[in-house]
Simulated assay, not measured.
Amino acid sequence: MMELSIGRFCCVLLSLFAGLVSGLEITSTGPTSIEKASGQSVKLDCQFTLAPEDSGPLDIEWSLLASDNQKEDKVVILYSGDRAYVDYYPPMTGRVHFNSPDPKNGDASINLTGLKSSDSGTYQCKVKKAPGIRSRKMLLIVMVKPSKPRCYAEGPTEEGKNIVLRCKSSEGTNPLQYSWEKTSDSKLLPSTAVLDPVGGTINVKNASASASGTYRCSVSNRVGTEDCILYLNVTPPPNTAGIIAGAIIAVLLILLIIAIILFCCCRARHRKKYEKEICNEIREDVPPPKSRVSTARSFTVGSQRSSLGSMSPSNLHEYALKPQYDKIPSSEEYERPPSHAPVPPPNGAKMAGPNLSRMGGIPVMIPAQNRDGSIV
């Protein structure tokens, strides 16, 4: 352990002695902290001087120091052996260059273009020329300019309500500061307005019609400012009773229309069903004859047919000569009043055959008949 401690002490003494005898010095005296906006360019200054005793090869190394001690530093650009190496750090490829085409003349400064928020960090310039080594650190803060904010009113914009006006920027490096102003009418914010410069809100309590107008919200940080415009229109409260009455009337009208449609459909359906039933009924094309005339004619014709069927040829000749059998009585004759009809014989009187012949009658055998006059 004693030997190890003596060895370390000797190394420290040698390094201090080399620093004392070396003429290498970093001469830059500019600020060690720089703030820039994204998209801009920055120059990280690192000027140095050499002495005749610095006879070793010149090496210049720029690195981005890790924020965590457990991680390694990232070499950004390197000059060694009279040659520049610019592709050490892929995220900065094409965006980092030495300020001087020949850094060995004493200018080890670099230029970073198209800055991004990820470029923020501590950069170290290390110049080595044996036996001397010198370095310089610089803090670069790349700030993002605020994006154009969005302005809108939250909640109902009615009289007597609390109206919240919001202003929000989606991008931008903190801290962001918000401010509101009214650009119309009196150009004064309502007396009941409460502004939140960090959250970007303005709360107008118990809003009145005078709060209507044009408002501008501005958001800013150390590298830029953006704004948006909002037009606020405070309206009177709605007529709730009128809205309810209108809704009820509209519902009743809809129900009435539906009822009319259903009624028409049912009526049309019943009419169609009735017409279909009428078409399926059996109809009599010719009406039947009058019952009395039909009965009289069937009776007379039946009687004549019965008489003719029972006669002999000799009697048939005599039957043809009698005028009363020449024709069938007409309906008018059949329907004559009883006063003109011959008086029938008394009930119960029986005519004998000789008496009937003496009276000029002809005995006739009438066959049996059914009700409709057909011969049985």
Rank of each mutant, 00 (worst) to 15 (best):
G224D: 02
T225I: 09
E226G: 04
E226R: 08
I229Y: 00
I229N: 02
L232Q: 04
T235P: 01
P237D: 08
P238T: 11
N239K: 04
N239T: 08
A241H: 03
A241Y: 04
G242K: 05
G242D: 04
I243V: 01
I243D: 09
I243W: 12
A245Q: 14
G246S: 14
I248H: 03
I248C: 12
I248Y: 06
I248D: 08
V251P: 01
I254P: 00
I257T: 07
I257L: 15
I257F: 13
I258T: 04
I260D: 02
L262K: 10
H270G: 09
K273G: 03
I278H: 06
N280W: 07
E281W: 11
E284G: 00
E284S: 15
P287M: 13
P288F: 11
K290Y: 08
K290F: 10
S291F: 14
R292S: 08
R297F: 09
T300F: 12
V301P: 03
G302H: 03
Q304M: 13
S306F: 10
G309Q: 10
S314Q: 12
N315R: 03
L316N: 00
L316K: 05
H317Y: 13
Y319N: 05
L321M: 06
Q324N: 02
Y325H: 05
Y325P: 02
Y325S: 02
D326A: 11
I328D: 01
P329A: 00
S330G: 01
S331P: 02
Y334F: 11
R336V: 10
P337H: 10
P338Q: 05
P338I: 08
S339I: 01
H340S: 10
A341C: 08
P342N: 10
N347T: 15
G348E: 03
A349G: 02
K350D: 09
M351I: 14
N355I: 15
